[in-house]
Design a protein around this nucleic acid. Structure first.
Lengths: 226, 226
DNA sequence: TAATTGTTCTTCGTATACACTTTGCCCGGA
DNA sequence: TCCGGGCAAAGTGTATACGAAGAACAATTA
């Protein structure tokens, strides 16, 4: 029963509210909770096997992150990304990831570049195996790694949050984008390795432009959820 | 009108947690709570005259926003911005506000421009009265207004949060930046009115460059807090 | 001095209570 | 059938109490 989950959660040293937040985020991103769906505190508390307090705290943060909308005295619902949201998110993401690419190019150590190359290798392999889920995961890891290499915590945390949302909207809209983007990733890593900020920024912009276009294609007629 | 009613119904009641969050933010920004200062739940609850629950929820959001740091089982302390923080924040802000200026230029209605001009007028007046606090406030309002006009909610909320932090760091570092930046603001509004995105973006960048330089000057030796 | 123990302060999570709103439903009247 | 009133259920917002566990710090002991 609930104790099972609680024991599992408690075994780790993270506060329950964080566990709940993480679980809530992934549940939303994975589509377990659909946009517009009502999230009552009691239900979440039961789902996660905790009391209302950790749930409430997690909900507030989830709201700040844009995953849920909270209406006073009416409760929380899963946010409903509109098609306009895609445009807006990509407009911001474009700027931020371009900056990240530039900074990464200017600051990357040999070890940093090596870690990126390793990810590319794994990605190539996963692509050959047609393991799309793994490719998507590596894709994500690569982006986050570049953000980390940029060495700017603000940039990193903001872009990371935005990236999560993009994934969410993607998944909602349609199937995942194919490993198609991998060629662009190679360009990007090459540019970062070269240490040429301009070039890295351009590569990032190219990549995002393609990703954005893909997002639109997928989104065609895919957002009738509300 | 139906939506009017609906908005009013729920939105009328400000939950305590939101009031606490707002109060906490401004207390931190105004320096009432200094970096590194410990924020126990009991104390905050007493300070704000509420129970601990709203305080806890506000603290989680404040953490997500970067105003406090919460160490598990140890509690919350006011975040300590380092001098590196300034560089990082401005790097991000530069990109975001440049984008905001461009979008604002492309989308501003006549009424939007008029509201910006009104702010400029009030600013000029306040400057003549040497009412620095008011100038700073108008300054802030102007920036937020431009973000709003940009019509991109993501951009707006992210940049807004960043802007609050910049204010905070400023205030910590030294006295406020003078109305000196007002001339740049006029340039910015002119550019937005012209509808020329490139020009608006350039104006925003110029403005931020100057602001950034000023921040550095002020920060010289001002951040011994950690 | 260094290690150990104990005390105290807090956080973290649970549980409970209750006022107040919102929502949904039933019902009677046009 | 449709409408609106009214009523009950559901759910949030807030307060309060309590216990377990951890961290900090002082006291004690070797």
């Amino acid at each position: 029963m609930a104790e099972d989950l609680r024991d599992k959660l408690g075994a780790q040293h993270l506060p329950l509210r964080d566990q709940v937040l993480a679980a809530l985020r992934t549940a939303i991103i994975d589509g377990d909770y659909l946009p517009g769906e009502r999230l009552t505190e009691d239900r979440l508390a039961e789902d996660f096997g905790v009391s209302r307090n950790p749930v409430r705290e997690a909900l507030r943060v989830a709201e700040a992150e844009g995953f849920v909308v909270i209406l006073p005295r009416r409760g929380a619902v899963v946010a409903s990304p509109s098609s306009g949201t895609i445009t807006d998110m990509f407009a911001v993401r474009e700027r931020l990831e371009a900056l990240a690419a530039r900074l990464a190019a200017e600051r990357a150590t040999a070890a940093d570049v090596a870690s990126l190359r390793a990810l590319l290798d794994q990605g190539r392999e996963a692509t050959q195996r047609r393991d799309l889920a793994r490719v998507a995961e590596l894709n994500s890891t690569l982006h986050l790694r570049i953000l980390q290499i940029s060495g700017n915590p603000w940039l990193s945390s903001i872009a990371r949050s935005l990236y999560l949302h993009v994934q969410w909207v993607f998944r909602l809209g349609a199937a995942e984008r194919a490993p198609h983007s991998w060629a662009e990733h190679i360009q990007l890593v090459d540019a970062i390795e070269s240490g040429d900020g301009d070039r890295a920024e351009r590569a990032a912009l190219d990549h995002l432009e393609a990703a954005s276009a893909a997002a639109y294609e997928n989104a065609e007629g895919g957002y009738g959820l509300r």
